[in-house]
């Protein structure tokens, strides 16, 4: 039975299929309004989240399904010390599919290994967040009309930024890609991502701390938040949090059709004044996230024989 733990669990054909299904959902929402009738999605969120949980729940409701929700480890069996494995075994008795967020890396994999229904990783610590990547890919496709031949700048926390790792993993499978990695020295992309993805596939890339100088060459600028919760040391967080702030002034050097993306929530890394710029795509990502989660829920339920 297929679960989605890491974006690489999906091959490029499956991602293309999910994008095509999402476009059909967008064009013909009425066709999908009762597809998941009498089916239940369990959302198990052991870490604070607003948009991802609501996105999954909205997706299931728009498919005509129902939602069982647990938000916060303090209100769940985890507070009593129940293991992730046991939680997954129990919840899969009630639900047809599970979306799970957990602060520990690898938690979703443990859930999938013990669940009798498909598990979707809705974020496991700083490790993976594959449905954010699917939302990003659908956004790129809708804005640029393709997923290949693009220069992608990723900026901010590239060390702990799971969305960046997944995005690079997914987009490096396309042709003619180039990546520009913009970060403070302390938050560079981990070497294993560079070695096992970019170098292994001979994808051109370079690292810099200077966002302004690379701005003119980018087709996509993917901004990320410096995440307080990933630091053990508050002083390091305070020192690095304002490393990059995108403003309308800085955008003047960008291509007129460049896309500014961000997985949200933002703190201050994109000025509110940028929101009115037609290149700002981060709120479109939110909507696209719901559509592609709808497509994903249908796909996994069908493959599990539950639709």
């Amino acid at each position: 039975m297929k679960s989605l733990i890491d974006i690489t669990d999906l091959d490029t054909g499956e991602i293309d299929g999910l994008i095509a299904d999402s476009l059909d959902i967008i064009a013909h929402p009425e066709k999908y309004a009762r597809v998941c009738e009498r089916k239940k999605l369990a959302t198990l969120f052991f870490e604070p989240s607003t948009r991802t949980r609501l996105s999954f729940e909205a997706a299931m409701y728009e498919l005509g399904g129902n939602v069982l929700s647990v938000a916060g480890s303090g209100t769940s069996s985890a507070a009593k010390g129940e293991s992730v494995a046991d939680t997954a075994r129990v919840v899969s008795c009630y639900a047809d599919i599970i979306a799970m967020r957990h602060p520990k890396e690898g938690a979703a994999l443990v859930a999938a290994m013990n669940s009798s229904v498909p598990v979707i990783n809705a974020g496991d610590g700083g490790h993976c967040h594959p449905t954010q990547t699917l939302a990003d890919l659908l956004t790129v496709y809708r804005e640029k009309g393709r997923l290949s031949g693009l220069t992608v700048g990723v900026c901010g926390d590239l060390k702990f930024g799971r969305t960046v790792h997944s995005l690079i993993g997914a987009m490096s499978r396309s042709d003619d890609m180039k990546f520009v990695l913009v970060s403070p020295a302390e938050l560079k992309l981990p070497s294993y991502v560079k070695n096992e993805t970019l170098k292994k596939r001979s994808i051109p890339y370079y690292q810099t701390e200077d966002l302004d100088s690379v701005m003119p060459e980018l087709d996509i600028l993917y901004m990320t938040r410096i995440q307080r919760e990933r630091f053990f040391n508050e002083e390091d967080y305070l020192r690095l949090r304002d490393s990059y702030i995108l403003t309308p002034e800085k955008l003047k050097r960008a291509k007129p059709d460049m896309c500014v993306m961000h997985p949200l929530p933002r703190v201050n890394e994109i000025s509110v004044a940028v929101d009115d710029d037609p290149r700002a795509c981060y709120f479109k990502q939110v909507l696209n996230g719901k559509y592609i989660r709808m497509a994903l829920i249908i796909k996994l339920l069908r493959e599990a024989g539950r639709l």
Partner: peptide, 20 residues
């Protein structure tokens, strides 16, 4: 040895490594 790994808190979870 990663303190953020699920193996740091999940009871009796085997520590499994793959040859990368």
């Amino acid at each position: 040895k990663n303190p953020r790994c699920i193996t740091s808190c999940e009871q009796e979870l085997p520590h499994v490594f793959r040859l990368a």
